[in-house]
Design a protein around this nucleic acid. Structure first.
Lengths: 338, 338
DNA sequence: ACACAAAGTGCAGCCGGTTCCACTGCACTT
DNA sequence: AAGTGCAGTGGAACCGGCTGCACTTTGTGT
């Protein structure tokens, strides 16, 4: 473990001043004679010199780090989002600091503190609790923030990227109604989440559009973590008039729901038709292959990174942007005609 | 967007010197009178002061950031690993810089450069190509390195954490043999990866232990990315004497393999018995539920983080450690008795 | 009362880059 | 020949915390 050469070592070895080395390091920051540049480059190579990011960041906090704060990376949807965000960021020479909140407001606030201390240039997040004041603080110090998947209505200054939740739930529910289902259940996210609410709203729209009445007993909110999804299913199945079709709009609870259905011995789609908000490859491997709502994760990631970097790079009009990309309904075989 | 207060602002507002503020910030670094401490704390609170990590890191690069370099976070195994690593690190007040190599040697070298420039205290990685010189360089500057899941034999100084690949493949293959299968195929990782090789080694052990001969045509290496897994399956099925059982030891290719089997109309386990290295929840939802090798991701993550932080915190004996945790064979219904 | 230690505090410089500005040549105008 | 412009370079002041050492208060023992 040797001690690392500094810019001054390089300068000395190349017989120039540190200013020149710095200019070689940051092309465009000033003129350097070609011969000098080559010489400095050679010395840098020979010494194995690498400028320290920390020192660099000290001068003017540069847009070199992005915070990615997700609820839970073990959820495949978020995992793929993370993968795409990292790739998009990498393509722009940006690094990603990954944090997970486990849907815990308190953990989230700690993560936010860290992001403040790091002076990251931007944050892409799935907000959990409200932590309103910290979010505002982060905003105050000039961090570009983007909420992805969910949002916080009381923070209107933040960019939002997500699918059109109302429309996607409407189309999923609409499909079931079109196949003749009259009693359609839905398991969505918690009522405090915008995602959870919007999808229920889309569901209502579709049910009413089909000329049916919304039976509140068929509408279930479930927490993102824990066994809430399974319990919701059980409750639905135990109804006097159980549903003949089910929309699982809570991605984090899809496997929990399916497991419960499987344990209940409910055969899909004979006894129950199902549409799920989950487009992992395995949904196609199930028997029967599941009809799903596909979220274009790549687009979500690209837009998020773009927005998170837009303000810094000056390409922004300053106004908060909301981007809703369309989710795709992929029909497979888990829905039967009634 | 206001400019942030610095330690000097705090000092001035509290009527003390920066040294005192610093000591309040870092308990244990020197004595401070209780009254002073309170006053300083109040001012910090009032001003909303947050020390900048970048400045802090300048002095002595501190163990506050860990690099996590994975091949592909959209692979559920790595995703869960990432989730656990982030949690373990967070519990120790450490942040995680996530990078993905996409199994690309060149991307990997760029990631490594970044890690060098950041002077991260430790790196947890699934190495891809060899990039030997950069790894050594990273090691030279005192970065604690841990290879997880795979390793690079020519870098013996690095800690390694993973499951016992030989043993796990042996037990998976052994199970199939015990059920009477004589022709057992295996699709493993590429031959250049330790994981790919070791699992094949375990396979051979089991086949020979069962008194059978290894038919090299049944042994397939497949790249982690792309359609290699599917192609391997097709090749196996097209054999004159196709296998009656299959071990899918390449986690990244499990869905590709299953998809190909499904398209081929092969019913599991009647026509083909299957054991897969993949313990995502969905494997239980398949019909039939898949017999799997379960990797204790939480343990892998915990050990990795511990090792990555051990040297820095001085709790290490200096010698490189290799930790092999046991993988568990979970019997479900995808294996039939022949 | 006096010496002397310990607690509490401040100054100033360092960490390793970036950048403003002043300075030197030299080619090119008039 | 004096004047102008600019490529090329170096000096030194930052950025925002940390910290060694010297200094001032206190408190304690005799």
């Amino acid at each position: 473990m040797q001690k690392q050469p500094t810019i001054r070592d390089v300068a000395q070895a190349a017989g120039v001043s540190v200013a020149v080395v710095s200019r070689v390091l940051n092309p465009g920051s000033g003129p350097v004679a070609d011969a000098t540049r080559r010489r400095v480059r050679d010395v840098i190579q020979a010494l194995g010199y690498h400028p320290r990011t920390a020192a660099r960041e000290l001068k003017h906090g540069p847009p070199t780090t992005l915070g990615l704060m997700l609820a839970d990376v073990s959820n495949p949807f978020f995992a793929r989002l993370a993968d795409n965000v990292v790739r998009e960021a990498d393509a722009r020479g940006i690094q990603v600091l990954l944090m997970t909140t486990q849907e815990d407001e308190h953990l989230e606030s700690e993560c936010l503190e860290t992001l403040i201390e790091r002076r990251v240039s931007g944050v892409i997040a799935t907000p959990t609790g409200d932590n309103l004041d910290i979010w505002k603080k982060l905003q105050d110090i000039g961090t570009d923030m983007v909420f992805v998947d969910r949002s916080i209505p009381s923070l209107p200054e933040v960019d939002v990227v997500g699918i059109d939740n109302v429309e996607s739930a409407r189309s999923a529910t609409g499909l079931l109604a079109a196949y003749g289902h009259k009693r359609i259940g839905i398991v969505s996210g918690p009522a405090v989440s915008t995602t959870g609410r919007d999808r229920i709203a889309g569901y209502r729209l579709a049910v009413e559009a089909a000329g049916l009445e919304v039976d509140e007993r068929l509408v279930r909110h479930a927490a993102f973590r824990g066994a809430a999804g399974g319990d919701a299913v059980t409750a639905l199945l135990n109804l006097e008039e159980p549903p003949s079709a089910l929309v699982v709009a809570n991605t984090a609870q899809v496997t929990a729901v399916l497991r419960r259905l499987s344990h209940a011995g409910l055969s899909i789609p004979d006894k129950l038709s199902v549409v799920v908000f989950e487009d992992s490859p395995w949904t196609e491997l199930m028997t029967p292959p599941l009809t799903i709502i596909r979220q274009p994760v790549d687009l979500l990631a690209r837009h998020s990174v773009q927005l998170a970097l837009a303000k810094t790079s000056g390409k922004s009009n300053g106004k908060p942007t909301t981007i809703r990309v369309a989710a795709e309904l992929v029909e497979r075989s888990s829905v039967s005609r009634l």
